[in-house]
């Protein structure tokens, strides 16, 4: 555990809390992609099945349970409690185009051909692209509420901090997993365009609106 990793995890947690509070306080999930949230729930489920087999630390276990609970909580709010406000017309990204390649890639490129390792690898690949339905939704409507952009910024910061964490670990000459790093870098790159818009518009008090 290092400072970058800890800040990354906290940023991830902050993103999830921002999203939950936004939905809860406004009683609405307008502008949020249920498909991305569904993919994140799959990611956490596939990756954290190791809760049953391995113990790393109390911190690790607690965070995993929190991430699982909050991701299912978000799905509950979106698809059951506030379903009427869910903007499904704009949430049309075909998620099978993400899930199926992630399964295929996990079966082909993995460190060990065991069920738990392939599930872990699948979750890494899927997480790297799970935000695409959300970004697609923002690009389709051409705008995002400030709170939605804060959510995306916190989520992107988590990925950027994880890269700093790997650089730090690399200098400590710890062994690192190429799969996690390549997928993590891909994931971070997906946020770059959004980061630019966030820094140039949202932080100056303007709404995030894509150039026509």
């Amino acid at each position: 555990m290092n400072i970058f990793r800890l800040l990354g995890d906290l940023s991830h947690l902050l993103a999830i809390i921002i999203l939950l509070l936004k939905i809860w306080n406004s009683r609405s999930c307008a502008g949020i992609s249920g498909r991305s949230q569904f993919l994140f729930a799959i990611v956490f489920t596939a990756r954290y099945l190791d809760l049953f087999f391995t113990f790393i630390s109390l911190y690790n276990t607690v965070m995993k349970i929190v991430f699982l609970a909050t991701s299912y909580g978000t799905l509950y709010l979106m698809y059951i409690k506030f379903k009427a406000t869910y903007d499904s017309n704009h949430d049309t990204f075909r998620i099978e185009f993400l899930i199926l390649p992630a399964i295929a890639l996990a079966l082909l490129i993995n460190e060990e051909f065991t069920v738990i390792e392939i599930l872990w690898t699948f979750s890494i690949y899927l997480e790297s692209v799970a935000i695409l339905p959300q970004l697609f939704m923002v690009s389709k409507t051409g705008e995002a509420e400030s709170i939605t952009s804060h959510y995306l910024f916190a989520l992107g910061s988590y990925r950027a901090l994880y890269i700093l964490n790997w650089i730090y670990r690399w200098f400590l000459t710890e062994k690192l997993n190429a799969i996690a790093i390549v997928a993590g870098i891909v994931q971070t790159i997906l946020y770059c365009d959004f980061f630019y818009l966030y820094l140039t518009k949202v932080l100056k008090g303007k709404k995030l609106q894509l150039p026509a």
């Binding site: 391995t54 790393i56 630390s57 690790n60 964490n165 996690a180 790093i181």
Partner: peptide, 10 residues
């Protein structure tokens, strides 16, 4: 094995 493959991360 666990610490050698980023499995200690979230």
């Amino acid at each position: 094995k666990i610490t050698s493959t980023n499995h200690d991360e979230l």
